[in-house]
Design a protein around this nucleic acid. Structure first.
Lengths: 203, 203, 203, 203
DNA sequence: GATGAATGAGCATTCATTCAT
DNA sequence: GATGAATGAATGCTCATTCAT
């Protein structure tokens, strides 16, 4: 997925049965939602027996949690690398938005699962997902803060509110795309959205 | 609830057992989430027998759906009245944001239930909730469109994207507040958020 | 069951669905043993739905525990009343043995369930059953101690060991009878066993 | 195993993986009980893979059955040799009791497993265990019968009941010790218990 | 309308057993 | 023989929904 880190690697797909099960979980959860999906559904989709799931995940909840873990990690690596190579302010912001849409635009299923479930309130799930959420937010905080420090963004902004603006907007655009059937590329929204966000934040 | 929009209305509280049950549903769902709540929980909270719920609602799902219906209707009436009395563009926008935060800031429970569940994907629920969602969006679309027509907002904006920016930002601010324990008043975020949104949209 | 306390009562059988379920549990557990019995088996035997069991008992384990509770209570009342009216020593001892065999001889099923399961080591069950076991032992301790005090039993006896002798012997005789198919009356063993026990204990 | 064939034998421990697995089974079953123990638990304790168990035992039940087999065989050899060298009646009885307590007092784990599980009613287990039980009883029957024939025990005794008295008493004393945590030596109960039993049986 | 006991389908999870390596 | 991942039947328990009172 990350062309730079696996320039030679043949397998773009992470292997291992655990990964295959998570992939199946994405397929199933994205269709029916976590709560309406059964472990048996996931097993069937993964082509394994029900019990096999429990060789890799302790609880049904862990399917969702682990899924957040893995994808958010990949996401973070990508965003961090991008931001590191960009100038604070407008350049980082538009890069961030573009990458966000690229990542989630790649797989509608993943986008659906993430955006539908990250407000999950069941304690076990919420606790498991929180670290992932925080890492998303941290990346956006960085964009805001470095942009302010660089003098590109309004120093009077509430950083929290600015981050909520960005995260809310991205969230809404992605879920709207993810739940629709249209074939528009998600990334096409990157430029116009960036433009609005920049205007909102600039000094 | 809003003394200005119901200057004559005597009953601030909608009465009737149906309304009482919905109120209980808010309390229960906001605490545990819809999926982890049982009909018996709601009944207990409402002080009625389980079976009584089914005299007022056909299915558990209808509790959530009806809840969206009623609250979104009140919301719509309020917003529409407000927008009708305001000048398109910046004035409508900031009025809209303020009212949004006022409404949801009133009851954390309602805010939680709405913002946690409006991405519900179970078909029955989704179908039932969609009209409410659409009416929310319609109100925001109006703000954007009238603002553009009035020449206050950038005519090159994608109205869809502009609406998603607004709705996403409001959404994020509200849920962040609703899920936290802090005692900050939600409406305090209205002015600074409005300012950012105005900058984002203006020509 | 106790003719004196219900001189008029027509129903010797305690009613209520809870009691009926316990009765079914005795039938099922005595046949297959607790571990090989399913809650569905008990429900079927009781003529109710599986879920109904859980309206009366929180867990499968509680079926066994409650069963011990109720029967041991009845047992205790009976033995205590008997001992109160008997002279310490030989008279109490033979009365005790006779009543023990009468009670368990009444229902082979109950005898089987008790004697097969009171060594259960699963913590939840063990904890639940212990009070019943202790009350059985306490009754036997009384026989030994009052017999010693009355000068009928050897004062050099270890009371603990004497009690273990009695309880072990009763236990073995009952379970041997309960697990066999023979139609001998259990109470027929009372007199000869009492004689041996008296000889063992007397000064 | 056979004291006569290894009077000097160094290895008190039977070797071989099968024996090691049984030893592990004792450790596991004595802690959690047979039903709450898994084959995987036993494998782990034995330091082998789960599948390996099945190279030595066909079914989980066979672990318990085989365990009874082996230990009761050793027990029988020991008791038989002892009884052969003792005078019928009081001498055999007290020897028997002493050896019984010595054997089970050696390993609390074995004592626990035996005394907790020999009332197991699941057909497969019961059938497998019965021969062991019968051999225990046969040894006690011998003590009673030879004691009667020798004129030491009351000829009017019911041999069955006398055996049940002995077996029940031993059983109770052992399990009480096995389930407790106290550090008393089991064999200390041998003499006082023998005395009571002798009084119970003598003419 | 109100009640709450009864229902039974549904599901997460366990675990004895198998078998390819 | 040894391994331990894979299997899938089995089961305790939950809970939306019904209905007799």
């Amino acid at each position: 997925m990350d062309p730079e880190s696996q320039p030679i690697a043949v397998q773009a797909e992470p292997v291992g049965k655990g990964a295959a099960i998570l992939k199946a979980a994405v397929a199933v959860f994205s269709l029916r939602g976590y709560h309406a999906s059964t472990v048996a559904d996931v097993a069937k989709e993964a082509g394994v027996a029900t019990g096999t799931i429990y060789n890799y995940f302790e609880r049904k909840e862990d399917l969702l949690i682990e899924l957040f873990h893995r994808y958010s990690e990949r996401y973070l690596v990508l965003q961090t690398a991008g931001l590191d190579s960009e100038k604070p302010g407008q350049e980082q912001l538009s890069g961030f938005v573009r990458r966000h849409f690229e990542v989630f635009g790649e797989e509608r299923g993943v986008a659906r699962v993430f955006h539908v479930h990250w407000r999950e309130v069941q304690p076990l799930i919420r606790q498991g997902i929180l670290p992932s959420l925080r890492s998303f937010f941290a990346a956006m905080d960085r964009v805001v803060e470095e942009g302010i420090q660089a003098g590109e963004f309004d120093p009077d902004l509430s950083p929290r509110l600015a981050r909520q603006l960005i995260s809310g907007a991205l969230d809404e655009v992605v879920i709207s795309w993810a739940l629709s059937e249209n074939n528009r590329a998600l990334v096409d929204s990157a430029a116009p959205l960036s433009r609005m966000l920049e205007k909102a934040l600039r000094s």
